[in-house]
Amino acid sequence: MSTVAQDASHPEYLAHHFSDIEQQKESAKLGMWIFLATEILTFGGLFCAYAVFRAWFPEMFHDAHKVLDLRLGTINTIVLIASSFTVVYAIYCIQRNNRTGTVINLALTLLFAATFMVIKYFEYSHKIHVGQLPGHFYFYDGLEGTNPHLFFGIYFAMTGLHGVHVLIGMGLITWVMIGTLKGRFSSEYYVPVEMVGLFWHLVDMVWIFLFPLFYLIG
C-alpha cells in the first residue's frame, strides 16, 4: 500500500481501504468470529464421530475412559481456565494502556499453556508406552469391550487436534507479546491482542467439552 498517499489523520495501522479505525476494527472482529465458526465446524466433525461411536459402544467407552487419568485431566482443565482468565486480564490491561500488565499476563498465559502441553505429553507418552493407541497400533490387554482401539483413535484425534491448536495459540500469544513489548499496541489499537484472545478462548471452550466427554463418562 506504499502507493497510497498517507493522509496525516490516518494512523499507520489503518489500512487504505477502510474509512476509519472503527470500520477496520469491526471488520477484523467479524472476520475473526467467522473464522471461529469454521473452527467450531472442524471440531464438530470429530464430535460427530465421537457421538456415533459412543452411541454404538457405550460399555466400551465406559470401560476405556477409566484408563485416563482424571487427576491430570482436572488439573489441565483448571490450567486452561486460568490461562483464559490471564488473556482477559491482558486485554483489560492494554485497554488501560498498561503494557507491563499486558506482557505479564500474556507471559502467564504462555506458562499455563506450556503446563497444559507438558501434562498432555506425560499422558500421551504413558498411553504410547502401554499400547492404548489407535487402530492397529493398539496392544493394551487390560480392556475387554468391543473395539477399544476406536476410543483411543477418537481420543487421539480430538485431543491431538486440540493440542495443535494450543501450540498455534502459544505462537500467536508470543507474537502479540513481542508486539506489546515493541510498543505496537495501545488503548487506541489493540485489535491483534483481542483476536488472539478470542482464538485462545475458543481453544479453552473446546477443552471444556472434551474434558467431560473423555474423562467423566459416568
Binding site: K29, L30, W33, I34, L36, A37, T38, I40, L41, G44, G45, F47, C48, A51
Partner: peptide, 16 residues
C-alpha cells in the same frame, strides 16, 4: 458475532 457463533453450533447440531 453471537449470531455467527450460534450458527456454527447449530450446524454442528444438524450434522450430528
Amino acid at each position: 458475532y453471537m449470531f455467527v457463533f450460534i450458527l456454527g453450533v447449530l450446524f454442528v447440531g444438524v450434522f450430528i
